[in-house]
Structure formats: structure tokens, C-alpha cells
Design a protein around this nucleic acid. Structure first.
Lengths: 341, 341
DNA sequence: TTGAAAGCGCTAACAC
DNA sequence: GTGTTAGCGCTTTCAA
């Protein structure tokens, strides 16, 4: 496989042609200071003449770094790729890496064998750090990477005491803001459609709902909370139907995702209720596979670009410093109104 | 950045612990023949004890190969990721690589700078070959890679005399089959909605339409062919409206993609025509960003798994052999009926 | 079947 | 400023 073409020029040949030592050529291609401008030009001319490109394996071996990071997607996330959430994150990560010599590599992990291969790839020194897109509590990958001492940053967290460095949106705060907005709008009976509560993100959003009510001195009624089996529209529809049955006079709903909210919307419309006049609906602008056919009018917007950039910043820091303690960043969300009411 | 943890064991330490030479350890980790079973076990024990993982940079440098290939997506393809087309291809590629030591790396290329970086990454020896998902005629990347002598395989082709190795579906044949099916079904007036004809794939599909009519001894009427500005539903709708205006009695349509077909469908329904009773619609199951809200009932299905596997096969062959001439493979499509009529 | 030795092409430390 | 040198950790002959 892929034997290097015989004619590939080496740094040594560049040095010979330019009439300088190897060290000088190395300094030039690495933009290191301390090279006379005229010398630098001579070297660059030789590089251009020979069509020289550095051998990255040699550079890694000698330099102890790969100048590459992996962005890992585990199976359930694949479909996210087409979603705005995902592309925004990847764009942001790519942009943040643009001015560095670091190459972004996406890898897909489906099986344990692939998990293992990725860890060996990283431990083998082909990447300097790993960005994790997924937050599945059962996934052993984050811990495998952490145990191997590899700089790792996760998007979101798996629990309240996450042990791997992560960047997360302020899910509780966002939910709190959404519900407070509903309260300020004069809504009296506010239901909640949560995601599956074995996911930390769902717990946080539910907590925000509760806190907003408590802060306003309202009672938190269990009958106003329905847990979705997942984050799909179908779950949202079912949950909304249940809420209407329990509380026919319900006039607002906070849903834990945009897809759940879209499901709620369709269930409401089916009963003839007008949105948002009769019932207001707010959901998170989220990253779940099924993009809602009809998004809710008001959403809690996550700062995706900032999340991506922050992940890169933390990763680069962990790559530079010697092993630091894990850290985390929680970024504020924003309430975006697309309704007039 | 990422200095290798000081404690990382090397092959030499494994050899010392196992009481053998370095060459022997190398043979063991590479599953090379000619090592006594007992020796092999001893080495494996030492590997396990030390938690040894090969340094991939050193291996690449000495072995002249990276054991990795890149699958490149250029900007317009991003949204494809969520589409069945894309995930099927990636799955197939991943599966085909499973039993090899080759790691699959996805890279996103947006700008010329990123294009350049990718080429240097590949020329630098970090990947042994490149798989290209996109077939944009203006994209200089395929030629940059070919010029650099890097094994490269494209999905689809940019023109009739493509100079880079590629794997493509039999677009003309698929279109021919679809139109022949319509003719056999007794349809008399068959329209065609093409994609933008500056794309080779669109030309091929139009050619198939023409050939089928000619083979059946039917006249090919220009007024029955409408070119879509792109592959979107909106274009399909516009084209269908135009066709109906020109030929109110039209009773079948071949569209160059599933999205165009979906657009045609919606335009037909808007006029009260029944599908497929009044008008039959066939499109290609395609890979365009906008997934149709309503797919056509009969489609030309592309052999995605086989395309992905074939791309890998060709790439691996190009990686093994010395520079071979470019080759291509055209894979048959399949007509899938989801209608009863 | 195994060990020893010669690189692979680069970076970085150290001289000058 | 610039040249020289000593590795980085592995694969791969070549002997034994």
C-alpha cells in the first residue's frame, strides 16, 4: 500500500538545493523566527522548485504531535449531520481551527471494534485530541479516552457530575427563561413535556420548568408534567393529548425539544385550538434527528457557534498544557420569539 | 501540544520484557507469519502487561503507509449526511474497511485553503488514498489529487471523459428502464423533467429517456422535456406545471430525481389529477439535500451499498499496485415499484 | 525462527 | 542566524 512515490523530495534535498542546513529549512516551513529574510526566500524558492511537502509521519515522530483532532460521532448521531444543529457545530469547529495548523478529522463510531480502533488511533498519536458530539450515558468511549489520558472535550454531559471536560448549554436556565416568559405573558396553566428522564439534558430542562414556577410562587403540579418516551414528534403528540385530557383549560406548554413541541402543536391543532392564542408553545431549538415539519413559534435557542468554538478552545488548551483537571463551560441560551402574541 | 505521555511504552520495552528482539515484536503486532506460537504468546503477554500501543507515526515513517483513507465531502454535500443516500454509502464504506487495518477519516472541505490543506495532508502521507463524494464539475480537488499521484476514487463523474477513477450508477440505463416501464404500462404521452443539464448526471438521465423512446419507435418531442434549474421540489413543481400547460393530456412523467418527482406529484395533485391513475410518475432515488416530503411511487433505485463497496475495492487496489491507469465501474440500477397500478 | 542493524524524514537542542 | 547532531519508534532487510 501507498509506498511513497520514489521522487518525493525530502527536507534534506530542499536544504541542499537552497544551500542551507536542514535546521534552517525546518525553521522556514514552520514559520519559526530567527531566519534572515533572504535566506527564507531562498529556501522557499527551493521548496517551490522541488514541489516539496513535509512528510507528516516524520514530523509527528520527531515533534510528538499530530496537528490533528478527531470529531467523533457515534451511531445515533449520524442523522444529525443534516440538521442545522450539527452543521453549525461542525462549521464553528472548522472555523475555530482554520487559523491553526490543526486538521479536523470526522470519524464515525458504530461498534465496539470501531471504538477500540479509534482509541488506538488516538493513542497511537494520529490525533492530539478528541471532540465528542454525543452524550449517551451508556457509551464507554468518553471514559476510554479519558483513561488513556487523551485530551477530550464533550458536547453536553452525561450526568450532574461529569468527569470529562465538556461544554453544555444552560438547559435549566433556558427552560426557566421560557417558562418565565409564559408566566409573564399571563399564562395560567403551563404544562411540561419532558424528554426521557434518564437523559441528563431532559432532567435539566424539567428542573428549569420547576424552578421558574417556584420562583413565581406557583405550585408545581405533577399532573402538568408528562414524560416523552423519546424526543420525537410522535411523543410530543401523545404527551400533549394526555395533557389536554388532564387539563382541558391548559393555555401553555413548555416542551423539552423542538420536535416534542412540534408534536404538541399538531395535537393542539387537531383539537381545534389556536396557537398561540389559545395555547402557547415553547421548545428548545434542538439537535434531534427528526426535524419538526412545523417548528414552534418561540424557541430556546442554543449558542451553537459559541459551543463549537469553546470546545475547540478547551481542547487546544488541554493539548498544550500538561494534564490539567477536567473543566466545563455552560453557555447561555437565548429566547427567540417568532410569534407576535 | 500533545507531547506523548512520558510513560508510553515502546516496542523496544515490550521486546525487553518479553526477552526477544524488536523484530519479533514487530512481527507479532503485525500478525506476520514465522513466529513460534510460544514466542508469540510471550510477546502478547508483555504487550498486555505494558498496555503497549504502536506509535503510528513511527509505523508510517518506517512502513511508508498510513493505513487510513479520507472520505471527502465538499460543502454542498453537507446536508446529504442526513440523507439515506449518504448514510448508506458511508455505512458501506465503513463496512468494507472493517476487516482491514484501514481507518476511515471523513473530512469536510469548504474553502480553497481547506482543499489545499487536505492535499498536503494526503501528500504528507497521513492517508493512503482519497474517496470523493462529490461530483461538482468546477471542483479542482479531484485533479489536484490526481496530479499529486494520490490514489483517488470518485462517486459519480463530472463528464463523459472523466480522468479520475470513479464508480457511478447506470444513470442512462436506469432512466431507459423507467421510461420503458411507462411505455409497457400503456402510457402514451411521457414527459421528462431533467436536472440542470450542465451536470453530467442530468445529461445521462435525459439520454436514457430519449433512448427508451427511440427504441420503442416513438418520436422524442422537445416540448415534452423541461429542464429543472436544480434538483429541488420547487423546480419539479414548476416543470410539471409547464408540462401540463403544454400537454394537458400527459399521462406519465420521468423525473431526474426523487425531489423533482415529488414536486411534479404535488403540481399534479394541485390540478386534481390522480396519481398514478391519471399520470404515472417515476424518479431516481437520489441524493439531493431536500428530501421529498412525498416520494414518488415508483423509483429508480441506485445500488448504494455496492457503490460504496466498489469504491473501497478500487481504492485499495490503487493503493497496492503501483500507479495504474484510471478505471471506472458503472453499476446497474433497479426499478422499484411502490404503486399497485 | 529470531536478532541485529540500517534507515524512514523530521524536530529540537546545541554549538558556532 | 545558521549548521550539525542526536534521536523519535517503527519496519525491514540480512545474517545467523
Amino acid at each position: 500500500m501507498g509506498r511513497r512515490s520514489p521522487g518525493t523530495p525530502t527536507l534534506e534535498e530542499v536544504a541542499a538545493l537552497a544551500g542551507v542546513g536542514r535546521g534552517t529549512v525546518s525553521r522556514v516551513i514552520n514559520n519559526a523566527a530567527g531566519v534572515r529574510a533572504s535566506t527564507r526566500r531562498a529556501v522557499q524558492r527551493a521548496i517551490a522548485e522541488l514541489g516539496y511537502v513535509p512528510n507528516l509521519a516524520a514530523r509527528s515522530l520527531a515533534g510528538h504531535r499530530a496537528d490533528a483532532v478527531a470529531l467523533v460521532m457515534t451511531e445515533p448521531d449520524w442523522r444529525l449531520f443534516g440538521e442545522p444543529f450539527f452543521t453549525e457545530i461542525v462549521h464553528a469547529v472548522g472555523d475555530a481551527l482554520t487559523d491553526t495548523p490543526v486538521q479536523l478529522l470526522l470519524t464515525l463510531v458504530r461498534t465496539d471494534a470501531e471504538r477500540q480502533r479509534l482509541v488506538e488511533y488516538a493513542r497511537g498519536g494520529r490525533v492530539d485530541g478528541v471532540l465528542l458530539m454525543s452524550v449517551h450515558a451508556e457509551d464507554p468511549l468518553p471514559d476510554m479516552l479519558a483513561k488513556a489520558g487523551l485530551p477530550t472535550v464533550m458536547l453536553g454531559r452525561r450526568s450532574g457530575d461529569e468527569s470529562v471536560t465538556y461544554v453544555d448549554a444552560d438547559n435549566a436556565g433556558g427552560a426557566r427563561g421560557a417558562v418565565t416568559h409564559l408566566l409573564n405573558g399571563g399564562r395560567g396553566t403551563i404544562g411540561a413535556i419532558t424528554g426521557p428522564l434518564d437523559m441528563y439534558v431532559a432532567q435539566c430542562r424539567l428542573r428549569g420548568y420547576r424552578e421558574a414556577l417556584e420562583q413565581a410562587g406557583r405550585a408545581v403540579r405533577d399532573s402538568l408534567v408528562v414524560e416523552g418516551d423519546d424526543f420525537t414528534e410522535e411523543s410530543g403528540r401523545r404527551a400533549m393529548t394526555e395533557l389536554i385530557a388532564r387539563h382541558p383549560g391548559i393555555d401553555a406548554v413548555f416542551a423539552a425539544s423542538d420536535t416534542l413541541a412540534a408534536g404538541a402543536l399538531s395535537a393542539l391543532r387537531a383539537t381545534g385550538r389556536r396557537v398561540p392564542q389559545d395555547v402557547a408553545v415553547i421548545g428548545f431549538d434542538d439537535f434531534h434527528p427528526a426535524r419538526p415539519a412545523e417548528p414552534p413559534l418561540t424557541t430556546v435557542r442554543q449558542p451553537l457557534g459559541e459551543i463549537g468554538r469553546t470546545m475547540v478552545r478547551l481542547l487546544l488548551e488541554e493539548m498544550e498544557d500538561s494534564p490539567v483537571a477536567w473543566r466545563h463551560v455552560i453557555l447561555r441560551t437565548e429566547l427567540v420569539l417568532r410569534e407576535s402574541a
